[in-house]
Computed example of a mutant assay.
Amino acid sequence: MSEQMQFIGFSIEQARLFIESIVKSCLQENNLSKGLSETPLNIRQACKIIGVSAPTLRKFVQMSLIRRHDLGERKKVFYLSELEEDIKRIRSMSQKPERED
């Protein structure tokens, strides 16, 4: 069973500020606050930015090469900053020469 917390002696405003500070702390720890300030991109926009087809982008997501955020069953979004990071990582992986032993 999970722990429970009661706000005894807190005004509604104090409870709101307390919860808000916890949420902000969690967002910072998980580096999610960056994504919230960006406008989400749909699959069509993401494909256009990185220059691939929708099936290719889906394959990249399946292979965990590109990050996607699922906001419900039918709403899938991407963030520009993450796309840029993922593409840089993919390019650096493909440019590394293979070692011969």
Rank of each mutant, 00 (worst) to 15 (best):
I90P: 04
A54F: 10
N31F: 05
F78E: 08
N30D: 10
R67W: 07
K24E: 09
C47N: 02
R16T: 09
V77C: 12
Q6E: 12
S2I: 05
Y79F: 06
M63K: 07
A54G: 12
D86A: 05
S94T: 08
D70A: 13
L41V: 03
E84K: 11
D86Q: 00
A54R: 14
C26T: 13
A54I: 10
R99F: 03
F7Q: 03
L57E: 01
G51C: 03
M63E: 06
E3W: 14
E13W: 10
Q28S: 12
R16H: 06
E13G: 08
K75D: 05
K76N: 04
R74Y: 02
S94W: 03
R74P: 00
L57A: 04
I66M: 10
P40M: 05
L17M: 07
S11W: 04
S37N: 12
R91L: 14
G72N: 01
P97C: 03
S81N: 13
M93V: 03
I43S: 07
P97H: 07
T39R: 11
Q6V: 13
P55Y: 00
S33F: 13
I12L: 14
N42T: 03
A54K: 14
R67E: 13
T56Q: 06
F78N: 05
D86F: 01
M5P: 00
I49S: 10
R67N: 11
R91S: 11
I66S: 08
S2D: 07
A46M: 09
L17Y: 04
A54N: 11
M63P: 02
V23T: 03
R58G: 03
E38D: 00
K76Y: 02
Q62P: 11
R74F: 03
S33L: 14
E38P: 00
Q45A: 12
K48C: 05
I12K: 13
E100N: 10
I49F: 11
D86V: 01
I43V: 10
M63D: 08
L36M: 13
Q6I: 13
S21W: 00
E85Y: 05
F18E: 06
V61W: 00
L71S: 02
E100I: 05
R58W: 04
R67I: 14
E3Y: 14
G72D: 00
V77D: 13
S37R: 05
K88P: 11
M1E: 15
G51Y: 03
E73W: 08
L32V: 07
S37A: 10
E20C: 12
F78Y: 08
Q62V: 15
A46K: 05
F18A: 10
E100F: 12
L32E: 10
R99Q: 01
S25D: 12
R44T: 15
M93T: 00
R68L: 15
S53M: 08
M1A: 15
M1S: 15
L83D: 04
S25Y: 09
